[in-house]
Design a protein around this nucleic acid. Sequence first.
RNA 1: GGGGUGGUAGUUAAGUCGGUUAUAACGCCGGCCUGUCACGCCGGAGGUCGCGGGUUCGAGUCCCGUCCACCCCGCCA
Length: 599
Amino acid sequence: MPSLLEQGRTHDCGSLRASDDGREVILFGWVHRQRNRGGRIFVDLRDRAGITQIVFGPDIHAEAHGLAAGLRAEYCVAIAGKVISRGENANENMATGAIEVEGTAVELFSSSEPTPLTIADDERLDALETTRLRYRYLDLRRPSLQRNFILRSQVATLTRATLAAAGFLELETPYMVKYTPGGARNFLVPSRLSPGKFYALAESPQIFKQLFMVAGFDKYFQITRCFRDEDLRNDRQPEFTQIDIEMSFATPERLFDHMEALMARLWQEVLGVELPRPFLRMPWAEAMARYGSDKPDIRFGLEFHDISDLVRGSGFGPFEQAGYVKGLCVPAEHAGELSRGRLDKLTEFVKKREHGGAKGLAWAKIKDDGSWNSPIAKALGAERCAAIAAAMGAGPGSALLFIADDFHTTHAALNALRLELRDSLGLVKGDAQWRFLWVTNFPLFEKSDRGWVSAHHPFTSPRLDDIPLLDEDPGKVLAQAYDLVLNGNEIGGGSIRIHRSDVQAKIFEVLGLSEAEIQQKFGFLLEAFRYGPPPHGGIAFGLDRIAMLMCDAQSLRDVIAFPKTSRGQDLMTGCPGEADDEQLAELFITHRPLPGSAD
RNA sequence: GGGGUGGUAGUUAAGUCGGUUAUAACGCCGGCCUGUCACGCCGGAGGUCGCGGGUUCGAGUCCCGUCCACCCCGCCA
């Protein structure tokens, strides 16, 4: 009699139904739980597809019953038996609850020591991150994480299928590349063959995908790893995965069309959700004016109103002296929750530096007769109050919240406040609202201490109408750059690139780059652009972040199989580790004294 | 670089004003149980209170330092 392993499994643990009644089956999996009632032993057998209950008894099969008594959680086993319908006794909480398998054979592949985290307690699991990361392979065994990675795999597979069908070629670019200063900090890889020299790990395939366009590959995509040596966050890992895309002869609209088709297919096939198309588009300036954010969450209202003009000449100092006075209106149905104490807390909230660092928060509650209950009502005067309320669409019972400051502070603080109210007032109802938004026409440059810097990257094309402005007022030049925003999260961004050398030269001039710097950093790209580059543009999506949102996961670590801690360590393998002297010698590297060390 | 939260049994947590043998649940070990499904019942074992120092008659508890994890700011074109 061949072993059960040799015979092979007939089903996974998630697929048996009442219609399989009477079928002889072989299942492979892990013992999820075992319940021993003496003459009846129940084993929940788990694989990545689901859980099936196996029942053992001396009357069913005495030897199998004896073996089943020795099974413990997370033993890896094969079980053979006959499917029987549970009829009235069905467990409606389980997908396979209509049946169970009467166990007639048990084959133990391997036993398990008690696990440091309890896989069967998945839903209640509150293990420390440390424990989870140290025993990641057990953490990954939990059904909820398995669901995440199955979903992530579907996303990757469908992305390939969709883009390939649309004529995109999947091409690879090097990870070990030339270091270019500026932008994110690179990881460095010492070169043994070129002593004293270093590769950089690619922070993105940006330049290579543009060279693919010069090469005539027309439409390119790649699901690729990117590396950035910056401090980590909940939604940031040192290595992460992008869906990287570039198209020749692209306009933003043509690109949007392809990308919306991709998103629509992902959401339809993975989540069963039909996304309305086309997605909404909103210029950056409008997003800032209405939401104070370049990635607004448009699942709820609370839009900003600019009342700078209405308060001019009011004599109320804080409003008079501010560049921007903007407010939002909390409708009557929620305004009742904003007690005086709550408002005081919100005032402290907007003052915090991480929430914008506003000087304060002005508020008003509209009484039934339309008059204001507000510390600033008297200073503004009844007439102005009425005009402001009208402009903001405020009726009896509404609450108005105002920030008065410079452009950046006003928008940052009011945005933080808006998102805080979203969470504390529960303004996003229902769990599955998917509101996509293209934010377009970003500024091409940002002001820094050292003059103008690229907001996106230096190859981003300005809007053609704005090219004359490059000389007059670079701050006003808008870019053919766009982000795809989902529920307040940036999930991708890109641009139409510059393919005209005169425009590129002008951009470098505005950025204050010398000819030597230009040649050193981008010489090979500019050289390539001398040989008939097509107009082109592209985008990159954060696959991890998309998977995280689709899974409703709280952390990027829940969709990255082997993530690093916030200090960039892998607690399971103990990486990064030290290199021994021999390795370093081969690379001509010597240590400087470490911080805090005696020598 | 800065701010915050946490670290106590294998796991998750409680531990009051500094005071007897550090507590519970789950897990583990032994026993019982023929319909459980987070099975139940009886019994048992299990501790470097992150680490180092200090204060004290006495420290899980107070003080100083340090390590680690998580969250945030800076940073991430």
